[in-house]
Amino acid sequence: MNPILQIENLDKVYPDGTVALSNINFSVYPGEFVVVIGPSGAGKSTLLRCMNRLIEPTNGNVIFKDKKINQASARQVKQIRREIGMVFQNFNLIDRLTVLNNVLHGRLGYTNTIKGSLGIFSKKDIAEAEEILDRVGLKKQKYKRADELSGGQMQRVGISRALAQRPRLILADEPIASLDPASSKNIMDHIYNICTEDKITAIVNLHQVEVAIKYATRIIGIQNGEVIFDGQPSQLTDRIIDEIYHNRKPPLVHAQ
């Protein structure tokens, strides 16, 4: 089976000299549910954002379905991004727009510039968006303004927006870090079940090890911008967890 995503010798050095990622190598295969763990500032967010080139890597390759994202033109990058859904810690919904409208944002990449800007979506897209909302249990809230929802509901809209892209890969950056424990479980269940049912590959950043072990088919441990563990949840011993979280080297981001 060909990998869906390959990371080769990936480095990221920020303009202020901070080394966020150094020499990252791994491949993700279709159907995997990869959880990336590591302390704050380890480079998890940077790694995820290099995958869809929201952040420009300094060196190395990111290959999605045999296409090098880091060498793609602006137009190609947009096309690649359509197939990669993203879910954020802060949900990043547009507060003043309706739930349905926020979900339809996932279709913008497939809609022409003028129609998309005016918020005119095809009947098919709207029907599909409603179907997705039904799936996450928000069908009745579709005309509610996004800022009237609770945190857990907002994240479900965030997931719906990513699903509206009909993605092959979902990147989730700390999707439960701003949620209470009950909502967190609900959100992780939704992400996991949907990805399994729809055969979507997922890469999820988390900092809760227990959650990672519960859902992941594979765990990647990152510290100081380097992969220090890559294996199955069962291989993740207490000693390794300790190494990832406690025996920290100096943090990547220095307070300056």
Partner: peptide
């Protein structure tokens, strides 16, 4: 978020 969805 919108950039990530491929919007222009």
């Amino acid at each position: 978020a919108l950039k990530a969805s491929g919007a222009g």
